[in-house]
């Protein structure tokens, strides 16, 4: 596996250090830490990309700044804590990282989080879809 950005690698370590029940608790805490949208996106859910693979509505916006660093913005309703948790993993692990490092994250990195047992493999597909859409937008911004 290619090297993960440091913050994402730390998250993977945190998840793999505990059992399935505590992994769920960790995901719940992350879901509560997902930052709200900045002013410029507050009324702009339409301008954000919907990730259809997630079981609940999730909107995603990606910006790449002049220093080629990636900034991620998510919006998901409080009734969708699992989706918020997945988004929060992406935000904590990838926000502010260089575009090249985000593009280098292996598509199946989420397997290392060990959430399959606690969340079910079907539900996890939403996370894979989120990463692939982030990468697609980063590529579009840096092309």
């Amino acid at each position: 596996m290619a090297e993960l950005p440091e913050a994402l690698a730390e998250l993977v370590d945190d998840f793999s250090a505990v059992g399935p029940k505590d992994r769920l608790q960790l995901l719940l805490e992350l879901s509560q830490e997902l930052p709200g949208l900045p002013e410029r996106y507050a009324d702009a859910a339409d301008s954000m990309e919907q990730v259809h693979e997630c079981q609940s509505p999730l909107f995603l916006a990606v910006e790449v700044d002049d220093a080629e660093r990636v900034h991620l913005f998510f919006s998901a309703p409080p009734e969708a804590p699992t989706t918020r948790g997945f988004a929060s993993i992406m935000h904590t692990g990838l926000d502010g990282e260089p575009a090249a490092d985000v593009l280098a994250v292996p598509d199946d990195f989420y397997i290392a989080l060990g959430l399959g047992e606690a969340v079910s493999p079907l539900r996890l597909r939403g996370m894979a879809a989120m990463l692939s859409r982030i990468k697609k937008q980063v590529r579009a911004h840096t092309a």
Binding site: L24, S31, P81, T82, E117, S120
Partner: peptide, 26 residues
Amino acid sequence: EDVLLYDTGHIPGAVKVDWHTELNDP
């Protein structure tokens, strides 16, 4: 449907049964 929704708050005294992880054979 959402495996974490119960944990964000539930009816007092209610227990959780998750279809994916508990009622399905693994």
